[in-house]
Amino acid sequence: MKPFAYRRATDARSAVATVAADPDAAFLAGGTNLVDHLKLGVACPSLLVDVSDLAADLVEHLPDGGLRIGAGTRNSDLAAHPVVRAHYPLLSEALLSGASGQLRNAATTAGNLLQRTRCGYFRDATAPCNKREPGSGCPAVAGHNRHHAILGASPDCVATHPSDLAAAMVALDATAVVLGPDGERRVPIGGLYRLPGDDPTRDTVLAHGELITAVELPAPFGGRARYRKVRDRASFAFALVSVAAAVRMHDGVVEDLRLVFGGLAHRPWRAAHAEDALRGSAPTEVALRAAADAELLDARTLSGNGFKVPLARNTLVSVLRELTDGAAEPEDDA
């Protein structure tokens, strides 16, 4: 741990100016991820700019029927918000499946989205890791990789993104409002995260000094939604596989749907192939399995995570079965 300066931001613009001007500065929100990294020597900023006090702690309606969530809104508050519970239950479900009550009380919306991978090598400052120390190698590829990616990984990094909230946000088609030194821009959460490629150091498309000020949700998708998380422990554990799903049915046919996997890739994984396969079809057991298989066709497994392929398939099918609720006629086990 090295000494650092701490500053409490009073407004977003100057916070951005301060951090953007100093390559060793970082935003601090709830600190539940960043402070761990300081202690572990994974992050060594010389200046922390605390943005958790900014007037960001709010949830408000948008004219188009959507919702604006301040970046500093605590995970517990967001999960318990009546509008969220009534119209975006997927979000509540995803948040409440994550971490523990104490952590959710401290963790913020933006902090949660920008938390870093739980890869054990990344978090051990004395181990090689391309994400932490470019060029040092990726021991997970041939090492302990039970929690690692089966989709979209690269030889340089096979880490997964750990956030439950992020998967739900992608399924809800949310957009991040981002303030940079040159002004504001809007980044769909679906496009926020990167695949590792040959530069695993960057998790997102955000530039240093860009601040998420809010996340906006479009008007509710309708239909039914579910966040299902599979984990070793019954609580307080990161997902081995999770599925954020929203389905709108019409006349026994899937009118529209959104499917996102957590725990499988460097970013929340929008299952576009599976969506395409099911949109406009009857959700029979055969169709559900075929859709899952279509999505997982490109899966590449490592020594310790082969189980994620059948697990992801079963999770997706079981969630869709529940959401389409008997619209499909029962079939023989195939």
Binding site: R118, G120, Y121, R123, D124, A127, P128, P139, A142, G143, H144, R146, D232, R233, A237, F238
Partner: peptide, 18 residues
């Protein structure tokens, strides 16, 4: 879990050690 290539335990914390 031990990484035998690095010769060390991985996940030396109470989130990783379940």
């Amino acid at each position: 879990t031990t990484d035998h290539r690095l010769g060390r335990f991985v996940d030396k914390n109470l989130a990783g050690y379940r």
